[in-house]
């Protein structure tokens, strides 16, 4: 059900493009208006998300400590897993965001009889890292279509990515790895009983959408050729805010750019916000220095707690305190008189 709905949604998009560009010839709508609108939704949507999160305070410093705290001088503390200051937090976050540290810890549990076996399981980490890094490199690589002159590092990246000179045009390694990553992530949702049980249509949809995006891009590059100069004329026109639609670009390009637009527009309203959300996560982005540096909770600062004070308590148990020989605090009465 969930899988079908997501798949139908993605196939529907292809039909929309076929109808809009192939039949109705709405080149400007699909080549300029929709991409611009999607980009705006993406940027403004994510900013709105971040501002919305930031509107709520982080009332407590609830770092998840995954390593030794900094305490006694002769005990080595874990700088990356239990950061003691902001610099170490940056290191921890870098490791988390760039290398998926927490996923790397992943274990798999198996129950045989009444014995539990826990073993390291890095597959999810591998699939995730393949997918995310490939996506990033592909995205950066695409900047050659959005910039002129093209910055050197993008050209270098391009050359490195096609290093093996397989086929013509040269096969990009990231095209292979992103397909591998996506396939793994999709199969995992379909095959692993636990993950299958928790998966929603909104989990399959981005997978299919990105898969469609990658496949349409690869088709365009390797099989159904389009004129790259015309494509760049369009994309560079978008980037330089002088949009124009050159004639004669194949339908496949419009499918590709429509997928991108849909992904960008869907981004801020879906689980994909984890891209920026991970930076906001209080269990990871705060140092474990709770007893050394005070964290302020805005809605409790200056609001004194109500509780049973010692003097009230002493009144309650005065006889028992006296009988059992525990001292009575005379200050309680002094304060009352004064």
């Amino acid at each position: 059900m969930n899988v079908a709905a997501a798949l139908i949604a993605v196939i529907g998009m292809v039909l929309v493009v076929w109808l809009g560009v192939g039949v109705l010839k709405l080149y400007t709508l699909f080549g300029v208006v929709i991409p611009y609108a999607a980009f705006l939704i993406f940027v403004l949507g994510l900013i709105w998300r971040m501002v919305n999160w930031a509107k709520s305070p982080v009332p407590f410093k609830i770092t998840t400590t995954c390593g030794q705290q900094k305490s006694l001088s002769w005990i080595k503390h874990s700088r990356l897993e239990s950061p003691a200051n902001n610099f170490e937090v940056v290191l921890r976050m870098a490791l988390e965001v760039l290398a998926f540290r927490s996923l790397f810890r992943n274990l798999r549990a198996d129950l045989r009889g009444r014995r539990l076996y826990l073993g390291s399981s890095k597959w999810l980490w591998l699939g995730a890292i393949l997918f995310h890094w490939s996506f990033l490199i592909i995205l950066v690589r695409h900047m050659r279509l959005f910039s002129y002159p093209v910055p050197g590092f993008i050209q270098t990246l391009n050359a490195v990515d096609s290093f093996f000179h397989i086929g013509l045009p040269h096969l990009y390694l990231t095209d292979v790895t992103i397909l591998a990553g996506l396939t793994f992530l999709l199969l995992r949702r379909l095959v692993d009983a636990k993950v299958n049980y928790i998966s929603l249509a909104s989990d399959y949809f981005p997978l299919f959408l990105i898969l469609g995006l990658v496949i349409s891009g690869m088709l365009m590059r390797y099989f159904l050729r389009v004129d790259i100069a015309s494509v760049k004329e369009l994309t560079l026109g978008l980037a330089t805010l002088h949009p124009k639609v050159p004639k004669g670009i194949g339908l496949i390009f419009y499918v590709h750019i429509f997928f991108v637009s849909m992904l960008a527009a869907y981004f801020p309203f879906s689980k994909l916000v984890h891209m920026v959300g991970v930076f906001f996560s209080p269990t990871r982005n705060l140092p474990n220095d709770n007893r050394r540096v005070r964290h302020i909770n805005p809605w409790w600062e200056g609001v004194p707690p109500k509780f049973l004070t010692y003097c009230e308590w002493q009144e309650k148990f005065k006889d028992k305190l006296i009988d059992s020989g525990q001292p009575i605090d005379e200050d309680c009465y002094k304060e009352k008189k004064s």
Binding site: V43, M50, F146, L236, G237
Partner: peptide
């Protein structure tokens, strides 16, 4: 953080600073 994000995603726009590039 937001500024870095915007700069990152708006790279094509500020890189070309809106100058139209004639087609080849």
């Amino acid at each position: 953080g937001i500024i870095i994000f915007v700069l990152f995603v708006a790279f094509p726009i500020w890189w070309g600073h809106g100058k139209s590039v004639p087609p080849p």
